[in-house]
């Protein structure tokens, strides 16, 4: 039994000691689907040097939908001001995957929507629960990420997007 905890501790200490510098992590290269059924690699997510938001969500997740609805209400203003693009990547599995396109269009969302049907991207990004939102700078580096949604937190997200659009550094 003790070995187990030793292992855990050693793993965490190792990782801790590796923490010499903050990595500029990028999105992992994982194959997901577009709404029209084509294969799309997440490393191809880009926005001509402008900020990118990536949201992992699901049609059955209320806070996820609330967050995307709240952003949708101000999305055109965000885009005008910063040129940001939001990729809404649904983790709906086969059970609800076919309903994602009607769901998104029915709500009139203008996001770029992708589907991670067997959780491959979710796993590669170490996401435990959705919603999970992260912000990428113009070079595709993840500069901020957050889990869960509380009404109003989209304001803070926009502050960060504006900073990134201006090329400023941000703290997570």
């Amino acid at each position: 039994m003790k070995k187990v905890f030793l292992f855990l501790l050693v793993m965490s200490i190792l990782a801790f000691s590796f923490a010499q510098e903050k990595a500029k992590a990028t999105l992992p290269s994982v194959e997901v689907r577009t709404l029209d059924g084509k294969t799309f690699n997440t490393k191809d997510i880009q926005n001509n040097g402008k900020p990118i938001l990536v949201s992992l969500w699901a049609t059955w997740c209320k806070p996820c939908v609330a967050e995307l609805m709240a952003i949708n209400d101000v999305y055109d203003e965000w885009q005008e001001e910063t040129g940001v693009v939001l990729y809404a990547i649904s983790i709906d599995d086969t059970r609800t995957a076919a309903k994602v396109a009607p769901f998104v269009n029915g709500r009139g969302w203008d996001y770029k929507v992708l589907q991670d049907i067997n959780g491959d991207l979710k796993r590669a990004m170490n996401v435990i629960d959705v919603p999970f939102l992260c912000l990428l700078n113009g070079n595709g580096e993840i500069v901020w990420s957050h889990t869960s949604y509380a009404p109003g937190s989209e304001k803070k997200v926009f502050e960060l997007v504006k900073k990134v659009a201006k090329g400023e550094e941000i703290k997570n």
């Binding site: 905890f5 855990l8 501790l9 965490s12 200490i13 990782a15 801790f16 590796f18 923490a19 010499q20 510098e21 903050k22 990595a23 500029k24 992590a25 993840i142 990420s145 997570n172």
Partner: peptide, 15 residues
Amino acid sequence: AVFCLLPFCLSAQIR
């Protein structure tokens, strides 16, 4: 173990 992990979680991804 959790609390040992927390500080390095805060440092985001590690290179």
